[in-house]
């Protein structure tokens, strides 16, 4: 369904995989990554805050709505690839795995396999969850048939 498409319509491939990893389950990322090469953690994983902004009236000047927790991590593989992650919440393991996956995905040789084995299945899971919620919402959409029948 159109509304349930992943929010990636205008994203670069890297923005898309980072968005998928940020919403993933740490166990699932680890299981799908399998054996990973040696890497060094350059920063974090560390928890912090992101100030979430809204817009006045929905489309006007920005205002600060409130903060949310987020965790960030940066890693470098022994082959020299640097990966970053910022993920909502305080899951440090997810942040580290997401940063590692981001590093590995930047290797053009590994990328197609990683997209196939890691990113696409995770994206499908996230899509299924969105579709399930959207289907429940759609079932509560009001149909004004009764009103029409009464007037007929």
């Amino acid at each position: 369904m159109p509304d349930a498409l992943p929010p990636d319509r205008s994203k670069t491939p890297r923005q898309r995989w980072m968005a998928v990893l940020a919403r993933a389950d740490a166990d699932a990322v680890q299981a799908r990554l399998g054996d990973v090469p040696r890497y060094t953690v350059l920063r974090g994983p560390e928890p912090g805050l992101v100030m979430v902004r809204g817009r006045t009236g929905g489309g006007g000047a920005p205002f600060n709505l409130g903060e949310m927790t987020a965790t960030r991590c940066t890693v470098r593989t022994d082959t020299g690839l640097v990966g970053h992650a910022y993920v909502a919440g305080r899951n440090e393991r997810l942040a580290e795995l997401a940063a590692l996956a981001d590093a590995l995905l930047q290797d053009p040789v590994q990328q197609p396999a990683l997209l196939r084995q890691v990113i696409e299945p995770l994206a499908e899971l996230q899509e299924a969850r969105r579709a399930e919620i959207a289907a429940k919402a759609a079932a509560t959409r009001v149909q004004f048939f009764a009103m029409r029948n009464m007037r007929a």
Partner: peptide
């Protein structure tokens, strides 16, 4: 609790017209 954490960034304003509607 929030005073114990550093702030990394502020977000782009959230786009409520692109909300995945539940209600």
């Amino acid at each position: 609790y929030r005073t114990t954490l550093p702030r990394f960034a502020h977000s782009s304003p959230v786009d409520t017209s692109d909300m995945r509607i539940r209600r």
